[in-house]
């Protein structure tokens, strides 16, 4: 599944990032790597961005839906 489909409050692990050097390098810059765990904090209204937290650093990042669709994740059991 993609991050776009992850539900609020769930923890997911990044499996794969859609190809594209630019996308990969922006995610690297934000601190989101393959294998990292993400906590889905919430959604903005009007089909807006998704807010995720990288639990290891506490950093919060907002991703637009288009971006979230390009991030493949798997659920992590708590």
């Amino acid at each position: 599944m993609t991050l776009e489909q992850a539900s609020k409050g769930s923890r997911v692990r990044v499996l794969k990032r859609a190809s594209g050097h630019r996308f990969a390098s922006s995610l690297d810059g934000m601190g989101i790597h393959v294998g990292d765990e993400l906590l889905v904090v919430g959604y903005a209204p009007f089909h807006g961005p998704i807010l995720v937290e990288i639990p290891s650093s506490g950093v919060r990042v907002a991703l637009g839906r288009g971006m979230a669709e390009k991030l493949h994740v798997e659920p992590v059991e708590a």
């Binding site: 903005a44 209204p45 009007f46 089909h47 807006g48 961005p49 807010l51 907002a62 637009g64």
Partner: peptide, 19 residues
């Protein structure tokens, strides 16, 4: 401000803009 941008991004996308 970034939080305000987050809140309105969805609505602004509909008129072709950015949060």
């Amino acid at each position: 401000l970034p939080r305000a941008a987050y809140m309105v991004d969805g609505a602004l996308h509909r008129i072709g803009l950015h949060g």
